[in-house]
Computed example of a mutant assay.
Amino acid sequence: MSVGLSEGHGGASAGDDAGARLRGTELTLAYERRTIAEGLSVAVPDRSFTVIVGPNACGKSTLLRALARILKPAAGTVVLDGRSIADWPAKRLARTLGLLPQSSVAPDGITVADLVARGRYPHQSLLRQWSKEDERVIAESMAATGVADLADRPVDELSGGQRQRVWIAMVLAQQTPLLLLDEPTTYLDIAHQIEVLDLCARLHDEGRTVVAVLHDLNHAARYATHLIAMRGGRIVAEGAPGDVVTAELVEEVFRLPCRVIDDPETGTPLVVPAARHRVRV
């Protein structure tokens, strides 16, 4: 089932600023007195599946929050479609950019269907009330994330993995051309992780720009068309996974000795950590 745009896929080249609807320039990102990044610049290639990777506390989620206008930069500018994102009206921004934050809290007692329906709020107005189109999009969003059979269940009764898929369904229901996902596979078992990443890949194929923060480097290398590797609040490398993911890069970014081989399923880079102990056979 398809949820999203019907436009054909056409990726921009890595690092091509001219093909970037969303970019940050010379960003200083901080929480109160703690600075996370300074002079950070990034351009998200239009219609790419961009994945941000890096060790814990390197600034991945902070960068995503700034790109989504959740965190105001202490310096620098985030620009969307040639205009400072700070100047966008809230509802228009919500029709253009959807965000799945790292942690979300649902109102007490709200059902799955009602929470997903909140994704349609940006499309409502005095002249446009609830419609059959809204119902169709909600049904498709729940089906695409595998939560249709939970529609009448209270969200606070669900498992962590089920709740995560419900939040993803709500973001899908916004039908935005840009999707920012902060650790979308959190709480999910391996089968559901692959389902969610396959869904993200389908949305990208349909024409959406998808930006995700992922912890699993092998998942990132398999699914991303554009990879951004961060450490210590700076971008260490970016580009196509086949160009970026090397043993040297993994050791520099993650401090992990490894080998990088071809994934036997996809041919994308596959990181094999060096053995800590050799087992005698």
Rank of each mutant, 00 (worst) to 15 (best):
H9M: 10
R202V: 07
R65C: 05
T96S: 14
Q102V: 08
S84D: 15
I190F: 09
V211S: 03
G109V: 00
M230S: 04
A274S: 09
G39D: 09
L197P: 05
L64A: 05
V3H: 02
V244T: 05
I194R: 02
S6M: 12
L126F: 15
D87N: 11
D108K: 14
A221P: 02
L27C: 06
D156G: 04
Y31C: 10
A74I: 09
S61M: 07
V271M: 08
D149R: 15
Y31H: 11
E195I: 04
V116E: 00
L214R: 00
R69K: 14
G146W: 07
F49M: 09
A221W: 02
G82P: 09
A14N: 10
G82Y: 09
V250G: 02
T176A: 13
V147T: 12
A20K: 10
T186P: 09
A90L: 09
V116D: 00
F49K: 03
A229S: 09
G146F: 10
V116L: 04
R153H: 10
S125V: 15
A30S: 14
G4P: 15
D16V: 07
R34A: 13
A220I: 02
T62D: 03
A173G: 05
L150P: 02
S159D: 08
V137R: 08
G160L: 13
W167M: 11
I190W: 06
